[in-house]
Design a protein around this nucleic acid. Structure first.
Lengths: 351, 351
DNA sequence: TTGTAGGCGTTATCAG
DNA sequence: CTGATAACGCCTACAA
C-alpha cells in the first residue's frame, strides 16, 4: 500500500554518514557529533523520511505499542441501541491512551466480535509490547497463550485460574464494597425497605456487586433474594427492558441497585414511562461513574471507578511483568468511591 | 520486552513442513493439502505460536492497521475539566474502529500533546497503512510529509492547501448548512429575535458554522454581528465560562447557537445558574450530535454528524488512495441532519 | 502442492 | 564517535 520511499540508506548517503549514525541520531540520545547530527536531520527533513515501524520493531524487538481489546457488545444489535452502549469502554480507552502516552506508548485498539475473536486478538497481540483485555472479550485459553508471549493484564472480570500459576495479571475494582456502600446508603440513609438488584448477564463483576447488595440488605435486617430481581445486558436499552419485565411481573421495588450506570439510566427511563418517579417512588443507583451520569436528570448516584488509576495501573503491571517475565501472577484491586447525586434522593452538585 | 519464542521455523519443523507452508496456512486461503494444514495448525496450537506483527508487516509491506490521531485538548487542563472534554473524539474513535474492523483493520490511536506532536504522529504513521488526522492535531507541513508516504485523510478542519495539489484527502460535514438550519429554526419557528452565536476559538469548523448562523439571521431580516457573541474552547467548562462572560458584559440573547454540543451543555448550565430558563428565556442549540445530548435535561437540539458514515468514508478514502496513490486530492462533504429536542423549545422524544 | 532462498528497513554488535 | 555487517521473523517469487 505505502509507496516505497526513502530508507535509512538514502538518508545516510545524503548526509554522508552510515546508516548506523542515522539510526543513532533518530534514536535520540546516543553520542554523535553535533555536526553529523545536523547533517542527518537535514537529510531527513529534505527527503521527508518516515522510518518504517515494522522494520524498527523487528530489529529492536519492541514496538512501543500497547494493545487494548474489548468485546464488541454492540455488534449483534441494531444500530440504534448500539450507539449508547459503550460509554464505559470509551472511558477505559481514554484512560489507557493517556496513561500509555505518558509512558511513551501508543495504543492499538480492537473490538472483538465474538466470532472472529481469536484472529483479531492474536493479530493485535503480535504487534505490541503488552496488552490489556477487558472481561468477556475472548476465551481464557487464548489469553493464556498470548500471555506466554507478551505481558497481559485482564481488566475486570473473573480471575479464574489465577491460582493455577499462569501469567495473566488482573486488575479489578472492589465491586462488592462499592455495591454494598450504595445499597447501605439507600436502605440506611433513605430508609428504603424493598430494594431490588438489576444484574448483568454472565458477568463476574455483576455477581460481585450483587454480593455487596445482599450483604447490605442483610445488615439492614431485610431479606435479600438469592438472585437479582432482573437482569439486562449492560446497555441502556437492556436496563429499560429489564425494568419493564420486572414491573410486568408485579415487582414493586422502592429502590433499584443496578449493575452498571448504563442500565441504571435505562431503568430510570422505564420507571418514568411506567408512571413512577425517581427518586421519590424508586431510588436508583448505578455503577462505574460514567460521565453521562453527571448530566442526566436526575443525576446518577453511583460507585465511581478510578479510570485514571486503572489506566496507570494497567500500564505499570505491563511494564513490571515485561521487566520480570517469570514473576507470579498478580491481582491489583482498586477502590471505588461513592458519589451521591439525585437518583437516590440526595442532591449533590447538579442533582 | 516480549520473550523470544516460537517462530515459523519451530512451527515448520514441528509440523514437518517448510516455513512457506506454515505461512500459507496462516495466510488462510492458499492451496495447501488439508493434511499439511492440519499438522501446521496443530503445531501452532501446541507451541502457542503468535506471529510477529513486525516481521509480517516488514515482509508483506502492509500492516493491516489504520492510524487515528487527535489533539489532546485535555492535556493542558486540570484533571477535572479534562474529563468532559472528549465526547466528540470518543465517537470518532468508535466510528473509525467499527468501520476499520469491518474492512479488516485494527486502529492505532494517539493523542498529540501539541509539543511532542511531530514525534508521536510520525511514529504512528510509520506503523500503518493509512491514517486519519483530526483537525488541529499537527501542522500541515508535517501532514504533507506523511501523506507522501501513506494515504492520509484529514477529518474536519480547514482545507488549506487543498488546491495546491498535495495528496491529503479531506473529509468534512456541511457545517454551514447545519448551523443555518438550526438558526433558521430558532428564529423562524420559535420566533427568537436576539440570537447569539457561541463560537470556538481557532477553528475553521466554528467559522463555517458561524457563517451559517449569519446567513439564517440575515434571511430572517435581523442583523447578525460580524463576530461571535462569545467564544469558548469547545469544552463544557469553556461554554459555561463564555456564557458567564457574555451575561456579565450585558448580553441578553433569547437564543444561543453554539459551535458544538459540549459548549452548549455548559452554556445551559451557566444560563440556569444565572436564573434564566432554557428554552423559555433562551433557546439553545449545539452541533455534533453527541450521545450525551439525548440524555440531558432539556435534551439538546443539534445538528447530528453521521458518525458511522464518517468512519466508513474515511476508510474508503484511505483504501482508494492506497489503490491509486497519485490521484488528485479529494474532499468529501457529508450532510448533517437536524434533531429538534427540548433545548430549543421543541419536545422531541425524551425532551 | 511444497520447498528454497532472497529480501523487507532497522537496530545493534563489534571493531576501528 | 563512526562504520560495516549480522541478525530480526516472515513473505513470496521461483523452482521442483
Amino acid at each position: 500500500m505505502a509507496r516505497s520511499l526513502p530508507t535509512v540508506y538514502e538518508v545516510a548517503q545524503r548526509a554522508g554518514v552510515s546508516t548506523a549514525t542515522v539510526s543513532r541520531v533518530l534514536a535520540g540520545n546516543d553520542r554523535v557529533k553535533p555536526d553529523s547530527r545536523e547533517k542527518v536531520l537535514a537529510a531527513v527533513s529534505e527527503l521527508g523520511y518516515v522510518p518504517s515501524g515494522a522494520a524498527r520493531d523487528l530489529a529492536a524487538r519492541r514496538t512501543g505499542v500497547l494493545g487494548l481489546c474489548f468485546p464488541d457488545l454492540a455488534g449483534d444489535q441494531d444500530a440504534e441501541s448500539a450507539e449508547d452502549t459503550t460509554f464505559w469502554y470509551d472511558e477505559v480507552i481514554r484512560g489507557m491512551e493517556r496513561a500509555a502516552r505518558r509512558r511513551g506508548y501508543a495504543v492499538l485498539i480492537a473490538a472483538s466480535h465474538a466470532s472472529d475473536d481469536v484472529e483479531l486478538v492474536t493479530q493485535v497481540a503480535g504487534r505490541c509490547d503488552g496488552m490489556v483485555v477487558l472481561a468477556r472479550t475472548v476465551s481464557v485459553p487464548v489469553l493464556e497463550r498470548i500471555a506466554q508471549r507478551i505481558p497481559l493484564v485482564m481488566l475486570a472480570g473473573p480471575r479464574e485460574g489465577a491460582e493455577q500459576g499462569h501469567d495473566i495479571d488482573h486488575l479489578v475494582v472492589d465491586n462488592t464494597a462499592g455495591a454494598k456502600a450504595l445499597t447501605g446508603h439507600v436502605v440506611g440513609f433513605h430508609g428504603r425497605t424493598a430494594p431490588a438488584f438489576l444484574g448483568g448477564v454472565d458477568s463476574a463483576d455483576s455477581d460481585a456487586r450483587f454480593e455487596g447488595f445482599r450483604a447490605a440488605v442483610a445488615e439492614a435486617g431485610l431479606v435479600p433474594g438469592d438472585r437479582p430481581a432482573a437482569v439486562g445486558d449492560f446497555t441502556t436499552a437492556g436496563g429499560a427492558r429489564a425494568v419493564e419485565g420486572l414491573l410486568a411481573a408485579g415487582g414493586r421495588p422502592d429502590a433499584l441497585v443496578c449493575a452498571n450506570d448504563q442500565m441504571a439510566i435505562g431503568a430510570i427511563g422505564a420507571l418514568r414511562a411506567a408512571g413512577l418517579s425517581v427518586p421519590e417512588d424508586v431510588a436508583v443507583t448505578g455503577f462505574d461513574g460514567i460521565q453521562l451520569g453527571r448530566h442526566t436528570r436526575p443525576s446518577l448516584t453511583t460507585a465511581v471507578q478510578p479510570m485514571k488509576l486503572l489506566g496507570e495501573s494497567a500500564v505499570r503491571l505491563l511494564e513490571e511483568r515485561a521487566a520480570e517475565p517469570g514473576r507470579p501472577s498478580q491481582t491489583v484491586e482498586l477502590q471505588v468511591w461513592i458519589e451521591l447525586r439525585g437518583s437516590c434522593g440526595c442532591d449533590g452538585p447538579g442533582a
